[in-house]
Design a protein around this nucleic acid. Structure first.
Lengths: 146, 146
DNA sequence: AATAGAAGTAACCGTTGAAATTACAACAGA
DNA sequence: TCTGTTGTAATTTCAACGGTTACTTCTATT
């Protein structure tokens, strides 16, 4: 099972905004063309990023602005914004194990902190990468293109 | 998006085998009852664990045997066995970004190693927990039950 | 004030994967 | 041979994702 592409699409969006935002406006149509998807898909993801307080969106005229310095927006922030439901854990249990079975009634409690630790390890690594890292990496790649 | 319950179900199976395996045989029907699901679901997961070389299954008579010491079976082994497809990464990209867009043609390459590092952080943490840990933890919980 | 460009959003579709279920074939031990 | 159990195919239901159309709302510009 894979994490939905909304996450990588959101990072793609940030990269476009950082790279092109100064020269011309970055609209959902433009982004959809770069990513090769539908503008509505983009708008839905933009809506999630906005709802999470990561960007502001200018209506009518178009244009996307991060609300804080790029170095303060981590991959984790983006992930949480587009790819998680309130209180949803990464792992999930089969519902209603048999309480009459000793294992059944204890397994949830036994696994919980271990699974949380695994999820936390992933999220901590995510916190180690910022949109600024992404921006600099992209600049470096583009400089190499000739 | 969540990782499928096959992972926690597989851990539940191991816990049952460890806890009850000496006293009576642990069949797919018994496991299905403890987990509260269908025996066929169990058999399919058992098939994956067997295919991965983690257990052996006695046909006809029933009975599940781990193929190596419990301390040498990690959560990662179980996860890989039941919840991943050959060469499938945890994250995935939207297919075919626009090669005419500078960001579109570089984003994949730019993100790849970062996403791999995040996935690896999760998997490394998974390697830190073994079926033996699980077994001991369950014994401890059961001892506390009175 | 009217217009044009763009975001917001509802409604619907097709595809995919998970979980569940039924049914039956294959196998091993008594 | 009979019985219990695994192996597996076929089917169903459901939810989520990605895609698409169509329309409304908003804002800058003319």
């Amino acid at each position: 099972m894979q994490i939905s592409s909304r996450f990588t699409v959101a990072l793609h969006i940030f990269s476009c905004v950082d790279t092109f935002g100064d020269e011309h406006k970055v609209t959902s149509d433009f982004l959809a063309s770069s990513i090769n998807t539908n503008p509505v898909i983009i708008r839905r993801i933009l809506g999630q990023l906005k709802k999470a307080g990561l960007i502001e969106i200018a209506r009518g005229t178009g244009g996307i602005t991060p609300t804080r310095p790029l170095s303060e927006i981590t991959f984790y922030d983006v992930y949480k914004a587009v790819d998680s439901i309130e209180d949803e854990k990464l792992f999930h249990f089969h519902e209603n194990p048999n309480p009459e079975c000793p294992v059944g009634r204890n397994i949830h409690n036994l696994l919980n902190d271990k699974l949380d630790a695994i999820q936390k390890a992933m999220e901590d690594e995510m916190r180690g990468y910022t949109i600024e890292d992404l921006h600099k990496g992209m600049e470096s790649l583009l400089a190499k293109e000739t």
